[in-house]
Structure formats: structure tokens, C-alpha cells
């Protein structure tokens, strides 16, 4: 494997966004790119990352390999990279280590690290292609704000989407709260728009602790997409350039 990223910031942000949710992960490398799928310890949430080969330049992967990496270790090494450093990942066939180099675009500084790999026996889940009943695309900062504000009151949030809009409601010991958003097009800045596409109304309840955690990915994208259907996991997607993505799935709370 040899994969060169123009900006180390992208990998730094991705790892930062998932490291509190999942610890030891296989980075599955093949000629289409680098993928990661992992459940959190309690098996409530699933992280699915895809960094397409087009996000790297150049990208070369001659044989499929799984790089078992401890994300705490990776975070320690990535801390040594500046956001605008050029990052290159390298691994040999049947590797013991993954090699990372960080090149400063402005100076002749080159740093190089090896991280020991782990043998991780990770089960892959089959994520079905789902036609979601409701898809909401909103500013990622708005979604972060909603989850943060409501998590101060309650452990869970009900998300209801109707043709009127989307409503986030919580009930807690001190009282209750809600935030409603309507479809809204911001003509000056499309990134601030709220788009709602609905085929049937949905109402689901989710743990806010996980949603707050997902919002650590907000720095990766101005926009976030929420996909909901009754009685299936919520999909929270942060799109990256070149069709790469970071997706989180969250199992709904079960009603009485």
C-alpha cells in the first residue's frame, strides 16, 4: 500500500471523530481505497468510513490488506502531523507495521513514524441498501448545536419528521425542550440550507450520548445528512471530497 494525502488534516479529523467510539479497528485497503467498519463496545453504534482511492494522489494497493490499528496509538502519531502536511501511508504485504510520513509543504522537514499493527478479529456487518423514509440535510454546526443543547436536559431525543419539518424533542428531570426545523433555502449560502425529503412520516428515539459523539465529525463537512426510516438505525453521514464519507449508524431506542 502507498497512499498519499495532500492534507494530513483529513485523516486527523476522521480519527479524532471516531476514536472515542471505537478503539481497535481494521483499515481495509484495496484498490478502491481505505475502508473501516467498526461497532462501538456496546454494539449500539456502527462507524463506516470510506476513503476512496481518488481522495489520495497517488494511491496504490497491489494486494488487499487489513491494517489492524489502535486508534489511540494512531492519534498519538497523527498529533505529530501539521494539518497542511502531506501525509503518506505505506504498508508492505503481510505487514507488521504501517509507516506514516509527514512532509511539510513549505520546508524540507520530513518526519516518519511506524505504528505496530494488531491482529484484530473483527466481524463485518452487512449494511443493507435502504430507501429511507426521510432524509434531512442540514448544516453540521446546526446538528451539533441541537444535540449539545438537548443533551443538557435528557439522555434521549425523539426525532419526528413530517411534511411540516423535523422536530427534535427531549424530556428530562428539569423539564423538556424541542427544536423544530423547516425546509429552508438560504439563497446567499446554500451550506446553511435545510433540505427535507420525505416519503412517509417517521418518529424514532435515539440516545443523545451517541449523537453528541458523532458530531465530533462536524469539522469534516459543512453539511450533515440524517436518514431515517421507522424501526431501522439512523444514518448520520458526513460527506468528504471525492465521494469519500464518514457514516455513523445508531440503533433506535426500543419503545415501551
Amino acid at each position: 500500500l502507498e497512499a498519499r494525502l495532500e492534507q494530513a488534516a483529513m485523516l486527523k479529523r476522521v480519527v479524532d471523530a471516531i476514536k472515542d467510539l471505537v478503539q481497535d479497528c481494521n483499515f481495509d485497503c484495496n484498490d478502491s481505497g481505505i475502508a473501516l467498519q467498526a461497532m462501538d463496545n456496546s454494539h449500539v453504534a456502527l462507524v463506516s468510513m470510506m476513503l476512496k482511492s481518488e481522495s489520495f494522489s497517488p494511491f496504490r494497493c497491489d494486494r488487499n490488506i487489513a491494517l489492524g490499528i489502535n486508534l489511540t496509538s494512531l492519534t498519538k502519531v497523527l498529533r505529530a502531523a501539521q494539518g497542511d502536511d502531506i501525509l503518506t501511508l505505506k504498508a508492505e504485504d503481510a505487514p507488521d507495521v504501517v509507516n506514516l510520513t509527514f512532509e511539510s509543504p513549505e520546508s524540507d522537514r520530513l518526519s516518519e513514524y511506524d505504528i505496530k499493527l494488531m491482529d484484530i478479529d473483527q466481524e463485518h456487518l452487512g449494511i443493507p441498501d435502504t430507501e429511507y423514509a426521510a432524509t434531512i440535510t442540514l448544516p453540521s454546526s446546526e446538528f451539533s448545536r441541537i444535540t449539545r443543547d438537548l443533551s443538557a436536559l435528557s439522555e434521549s431525543v425523539a426525532i419526528e419528521c413530517t411534511k411540516e419539518g423535523v422536530k427534535f424533542t427531549c424530556t428530562g428531570d428539569i423539564g423538556n425542550g424541542s427544536v423544530s426545523l423547516r425546509q429552508h433555502t438560504n439563497v446567499e449560502n446554500d451550506a446553511k440550507s435545510v433540505d427535507i425529503s420525505l416519503t412517509e412520516p417517521v418518529a424514532l428515539t435515539f440516545s443523545l450520548k451517541y449523537l453528541v459523539n458523532f458530531c465530533k465529525a462536524a469539522g469534516l463537512s459543512d453539511r450533515v445528512r440524517l436518514c431515517l426510516s421507522n424501526e431501522v438505525p439512523l444514518l448520520v453521514e458526513y460527506g468528504l471530497s471525492n465521494n469519500s464519507y464518514l457514516r455513523f449508524y445508531l440503533a433506535p431506542k426500543i419503545g415501551d
Binding site: 461497532m39 456496546s42 454494539h43 449500539v44 453504534a45 456502527l46 466481524e123 463485518h124 456487518l125 452487512g126 449494511i127 443493507p128 440516545s207 431501522v232 438505525p233 449508524y249 445508531l250 440503533a251 433506535p252 431506542k253 426500543i254 419503545g255
Partner: peptide
Amino acid sequence: IEGQGSIATFFGKK
């Protein structure tokens, strides 16, 4: 976790 479904219930093992 009480009242919380598991993701594996929805997405079968490959």
C-alpha cells in the same frame, strides 16, 4: 443499556 436496541440486530453478520 435499557430500552436500547443493538445495531447487530438490524445489520446481519456478513
